[in-house]
Amino acid sequence: MEKIADVIKYEGDNATFIWKHPNEDFNSLTQLIVHESQEAIFMMNGQALDLFGPGRYTLETQNIPKIGRFLKRATGDETPFHCEVYFINKTEQMAIKWGTDSKVEFMEPTYQFPIKIGACGEMNLRAEDSRKLLLKVVGTENYLTQSKLTQLFRAFLMTKIKTYLARSIRESKISIFEIDEHLQELSENLHKMLIEDFADYGVALERFFVTTIVKPDGDSAYEKFKSLHFRQYADIAEAKLRQQVGIIDKQTEAQKMVIESQALAQKRTQEGYTYQQERGFDVAEKVAENEAVGEFTNMGVGFGTMAGVGGAVGGMVGGMMNDAMGSAMNLSIPTPASQPAQTFCDNCGAKLNQGSAFCEECGTPVVKSNKTCINCGYEFERPGKFCPKCGTKREG
């Protein structure tokens, strides 16, 4: 019994871009079901008529049951109204492998020597323009899978990728010895360059990754410049390390000084004396180490110094030292009372000895004033019988 209507839906897998339903020349009233992330193209008499998005549709094909049987007899059991449906998978197809089939030759931008490299990676593709992809790539084929697409695009991919790869390395001046650090940059550059090329075939290049750069290990020129490059950067790294170690040592020394200073300040606070007081102790200790009074002068320490070097403690130490120094001075330096007063002759100016009645030089009599002590020379301020300075009996 001949079916009046069919149900047409997608029966492919996610690794397929375009899939043609095997049921052809179906009758009118056939139901077309299109899933999400899919599109369907209805072909009638060799022409792509309608593009269907997600949903359910009833197709009109001019193939009518019973009447179609009489028409087929006239054409040898073939309907004159040929029809078919293509399903297009709109999902993003990920991790599609690519790789150069031969080495890319270019001039190394840093050391300017010729070099050959290979490259490989992955890309994500998506069918964007269903009609363009079907008409330009699939044609009358029954399907288009990932492997078949990369096979059809192989020559296209190799030519474009190798050209763009060499150009990107040259324009970005990427050293072959540092190229692994720039894989993301290379991937982004190649992605931008390839987008329009894929779009010409109705394919969207969603992602493009360069995962591996195959270097010419063992090549004499490459190994020579590789050794030079890493030796140069090893020297730079060593110099930076030494500089950093020096900075760390200085920082450690400074931190140590800060810690010691803080500990000393805390100690002073706990012991109840200030920095000025501590300095008074230090100066007093230095003074005490000198036995002769004359050495205080050599040290530049005056008798009034100790009184101001350390606040309360310094004043106390300074007072004690002043008393000690005063006693030493009294013992070592004769007092004015022990020294006779020196007078001079009024006639010739010669120095007169104590108690002289006449000048030894000119014989002029010495005139004694009752206003001056004959012993110490003290000038009397008021009448009296004895000198208030030395106790000698006054004359007159």
Rank of each mutant, 00 (worst) to 15 (best):
L29P: 04
G377L: 07
K103W: 14
A15T: 14
S338T: 15
G355E: 09
Q243I: 05
M299V: 05
F42V: 11
K3H: 03
F52Y: 14
E291V: 00
M193A: 15
E108W: 08
G377T: 04
T211A: 12
S130F: 02
K256E: 12
T335I: 05
N330L: 13
A48D: 12
E92K: 15
L352A: 07
R126S: 10
Y201S: 12
G319D: 13
V34W: 03
E285Q: 15
L165K: 02
Q342R: 07
E36D: 03
T58M: 07
Y378W: 06
T61V: 08
R231Q: 14
I374F: 11
P365V: 05
D346W: 11
M44Q: 06
A357P: 10
K250A: 02
R231I: 12
K132H: 09
E206K: 12
T110S: 00
L352V: 05
G384W: 01
T30R: 03
T140E: 15
I248N: 09
F198Q: 02
M320A: 13
I117N: 03
D180Y: 00
Q31M: 15
R242T: 07
Q276W: 09
Q243D: 13
N124F: 08
G391T: 07
Y275F: 09
E185Y: 06
A337F: 12
L134F: 06
A15F: 11
A350M: 05
G294Y: 11
Y10I: 04
G118C: 10
S168Q: 02
P109V: 05
R242L: 10
A328D: 04
A284P: 01
V138W: 05
T16N: 03
D197G: 00
M321A: 04
F281K: 08
N27H: 12
K389Y: 06
A284W: 05
V7N: 00
P109A: 08
G99L: 03
G384P: 02
P216Q: 11
G377M: 10
E122R: 06
T61P: 05
M158V: 09
S37V: 08
D219W: 01
W98S: 07
K385E: 10
S261W: 13
A288V: 10
E395M: 12
M1E: 01
L125Q: 01
S147Y: 02
Q62K: 09
F70S: 08
S220G: 09
D346Q: 13
F209H: 08
T110I: 08
K385A: 08
L144F: 00
P383I: 08
Q255P: 06
C373W: 02
A239V: 13
T211C: 03
M329S: 07
A74Y: 09
L59F: 02
T252C: 10
I41L: 07
Q270I: 11
E289Q: 12
S172E: 15
S220W: 04
F70I: 14
Q339E: 13
Y378F: 11
E11P: 01
E285Y: 13
C345V: 11
F113P: 00
D13E: 13
H21V: 01
H229C: 04
A263N: 03
Q255I: 14
